[in-house]
Design a protein around this nucleic acid. Structure first.
Length: 193
DNA sequence: ATGATGATCTACT
DNA sequence: GTAGATCATCATC
């Protein structure tokens, strides 16, 4: 399990280093898990795409102001997305988990998603929250304990990490083109090419 | 109390 | 590629 210092590194660095780790959900005593294949960094006060841009502290973004290593879960378009908070309580930044490669508990994931195809289970930020049955209760909870935590798995070499602009932030002006989306080169489990 | 807004997904062409 | 469904959250009234 990563230490608390892991999450206090620069957000871009956490986003890259989360690739290859496992996101694990314990559901009714069973492990549902996947390898993190795609992430996006959200850089807080000066990032127009970030929910905490300009120092916003509405109820929805409260968890982003926690110290690194907590979960931040928000509703969007009637769905839930899952983030890992980074840095300290003075720096409201986070990493959005956008895709996983399913590993354990695949039959449960198929049930939660009501889909059979492996690639349809976790290749999108709201898809993976549904597949792992991640619920709003986990917002603001630390990620070093059951029922939802992150586990070390494989290390992805820098040469295998692709950086591209983030998805779905057309309103974010200059931040639109910042290359803060990271994914494992050649992975079959990413949300978009 | 109401209306606008998405860090989305699905189904369709 | 594009349209429509979706619904909690927030700003405004």
């Amino acid at each position: 399990m990563p230490s608390q210092f892991f999450y206090q590194q620069k957000t871009e660095e956490v986003a890259k280093q989360l690739l290859g780790k496992k996101l694990v959900r314990i559901y009714k005593g069973k492990r549902l898990s996947g390898i993190i294949t795609e992430t996006e960094a959200y850089l807080g006060l000066t990032d127009k795409a970030c929910h905490s841009y300009g120092g916003k502290r509405t109820k929805k973004v409260t968890s982003m102001w926690l110290r690194g290593g907590h979960g931040y879960i928000y509703h969007i378009h009637g769905r839930l997305c899952f983030n890992v908070v980074t840095l300290t309580s003075e720096h409201p930044e986070a990493v959005l988990i956008r895709a996983l490669e399913p590993l354990e508990g695949i039959e449960e994931m198929k049930r939660f998603r009501d889909k059979e195809e492996l690639k349809q289970l976790t290749t999108g930020p709201a898809k993976l929250t549904e597949a792992l049955n991640i619920i709003k209760d986990f917002d603001g909870k630390p990620l070093n304990q059951e029922p939802l935590f992150i586990e070390d798995h494989i290390k992805i070499p820098k040469s295998q990490i692709v950086a591209k602009p983030r998805i779905g932030i057309h309103y974010a002006e200059e931040a639109i083109e910042w290359p803060l989306r990271y994914y494992i080169k050649d992975s079959q489990f990413i949300s978009k090419r």
